[in-house]
Simulated scan of single mutants.
Amino acid sequence: MTAVVAITPACAQQGFNHLAGTWSGAGSMKPKDGPHERVRCKVDYAVKNEGQSVKMNVRCASDAYKMELSANIEQRGSELSGNWFESQYRQGGKISGQNVDGLIDAKIESDTITALLAVRTKGSRQSFTMESPGAWVSQVSIDLLRDAR
């Protein structure tokens, strides 16, 4: 099980305020033992502490898989830290990383999973890629758009 996490501050901003709301999109995922699959995702962001923390809920589904992930992330300076839990596969762990010039480089870890993420936001668009060699999902690439408020 590899969790998909979208952590995405914008270029000129150092907090999470601009993420508040719901984002939706699609992309592809590569199961360890199968072909790429189309996946659809919805991400809800609830921003707290003057933009320095965010609670996010991520729901993704393909024809064969479903994922429901929640995360709490704090930002201090450019450093990110937090925790995550995925309810379908009952996995959880830590999030660490950096937000520098609108690019998030993050790592999610548990006892059995390590995944590296690269995430960008530009205006009302977000994109991220995830690599987790050896995990049940080894690659994910998703593009999200901010839903109308």
Rank of each mutant, 00 (worst) to 15 (best):
M1E: 14
A3I: 05
V5R: 02
A6N: 14
P9G: 09
A12G: 15
A12D: 12
Q13Y: 10
Q13G: 10
G15K: 07
G15N: 14
F16A: 01
N17M: 07
L19R: 02
A20H: 03
A20F: 03
W23N: 00
S24C: 07
S24A: 15
S28A: 11
P35G: 15
P35H: 11
P35A: 15
H36R: 13
R40E: 08
D44G: 03
A46L: 08
N49L: 11
G51V: 02
S53P: 01
V54Q: 02
N57P: 02
R59P: 00
A61K: 11
M67I: 08
M67W: 06
A71D: 07
N72F: 11
N72E: 12
G77Y: 06
E79I: 10
E79F: 13
L80H: 05
W84N: 01
W84M: 02
W84Q: 00
F85C: 02
F85W: 09
E86Y: 03
S87Y: 09
S87I: 08
Q88Y: 10
R90F: 09
R90Y: 11
Q91W: 05
G93W: 01
G93Y: 07
S96H: 08
G97T: 03
N99T: 06
N99V: 09
V100E: 12
L103H: 07
K107E: 12
D111A: 13
D111S: 12
L117Q: 00
A118P: 00
V119A: 11
R125C: 03
R125D: 14
T129Q: 13
E131L: 08
S132A: 15
S132D: 05
G134R: 07
A135L: 05
W136V: 08
W136Q: 14
S138Y: 01
Q139L: 08
V140Q: 08
V140E: 02
L144T: 00
L145I: 08
D147L: 11
R149E: 10
